[in-house]
């Protein structure tokens, strides 16, 4: 039974680590499916985390924190949209700029407002998203396997975790079953076709980046208000880029995106778990190696195992009406 416990333990932390990746990955999916590449997921997450933590600390409310996080993140997404949709700027440059702005301003504002070296004050439980126990979780705790999975793996996560996983089928439904989704996919493939069909390319893409902002705001909130109790500088630590990698790995499809994020999350959880544990045959492995492992595997997976990932055809290209 010890093995099952250990496994559930790892899977549980896999879920925890995967949530911000998943939210950011779905965020990127909306934007990139509409033809706007977004390397600024990282920055928007970070800004969202900071804004969420700051607002939650001031108003002592997780919900206000979440709302402010999404507003700030959407604001930054709109800046990216303004640069790349309205002004047809280079989307990579604009995205990188967002990342720099977020990395710098969160620390400066944090120091100016709270004087804790760029941190926000530690949040009390009522200003965070606490664990939700699913009905009957305690009662089933001792039932072997099924009960363990239910109470140890499925129950006890924060609201945002459930939202993140429900966002996967929802995104699939939006993308493939609604008018908005049809147009969104079309504008990322051939904006001229959308334009001649009498639909505004710019407005459609703006709506897509707004979706991106909402989701990165949630991703940031999860990190600052659920996983941790406040904002620490540079707390996203490259998750925005890993989410992008997962998006490519999943070939811009929502359900594979979830599995890709879970895989990256699993590698991360495994690395944490194995730190300091001697491995059979190899012996003790330096911590740094274990920490690097997920990234090394990411590179290998992306380089060799996904086959040809075809991005949305109009991705990264500003739309100009041809003469």
């Amino acid at each position: 039974m010890e093995f099952v416990d250990a496994l559930i333990n790892i899977l549980n932390s896999t879920i925890r680590v995967s949530v911000p990746l998943l939210l950011a990955c779905l965020a990127g999916l909306y934007s990139e499916r509409s033809g706007v590449f977004d390397i600024g997921l990282e920055g928007k997450m970070l800004a969202g985390a900071f804004a969420g933590a700051a607002a939650a600390a001031v108003f002592a409310s997780a919900w206000i924190g979440l709302l402010v996080a999404m507003l700030v993140s959407v604001g930054m997404a709109l800046v990216h949209g303004f640069a790349s949709i309205t002004h047809r700027g280079n989307q990579i440059v604009s995205g990188v700029a967002i990342n720099f702005i977020a990395a710098g301003s969160t620390i400066i504002l944090g120091q100016a407002w709270f004087q804790q070296g760029g941190r926000t004050p530690s949040l009390p439980p009522e200003a965070r998203f606490g664990a939700i126990n699913l009905p009957g979780a305690d009662a089933l705790r001792d039932v072997p396997v099924i009960g363990q999975i239910y109470s140890g793996l499925l129950s006890g996560h924060s609201l945002l975790t459930y939202v993140a996983f429900l966002a996967v089928p929802f995104t699939w439904w939006v993308l493939f079953r609604t008018r908005f989704g049809l147009r969104l996919r079309a504008v990322g493939e051939n904006p001229a076709a959308v334009d001649t069909a009498g639909i505004s390319v710019a407005w459609l893409r703006y709506r897509a980046v707004i979706c991106t902002g909402i989701l990165t705001g949630m991703a940031g909130s999860y990190m600052a208000l659920a996983q941790n109790a406040g904002f620490v500088k540079d707390m996203t630590a490259g998750r925005g880029y890993i989410a992008l990698a997962a998006l490519i790995f999943a070939k811009w499809r929502p359900v594979p995106a979830m599995f890709a994020c879970l895989l990256f999350g699993f590698l991360d959880a495994l690395a944490i778990r194995l730190q300091g544990t001697p491995l059979p045959v190899i012996g003790k492995v330096p911590v740094q190696f274990m920490q690097a492992l997920p990234y090394v595997l990411t590179v290998i997976l992306l380089a060799g195992f996904i086959g040809k990932a075809i991005p949305p055809r109009a991705g990264g290209v500003p739309y100009v009406k041809e003469r």
Partner: peptide, 21 residues
Amino acid sequence: MLVENFTVLENVILGAEGEPL
């Protein structure tokens, strides 16, 4: 002005869908 990886039907209704679903 066609979306190349869409079906014929999807291309025909694009912009003339009528309703949100």
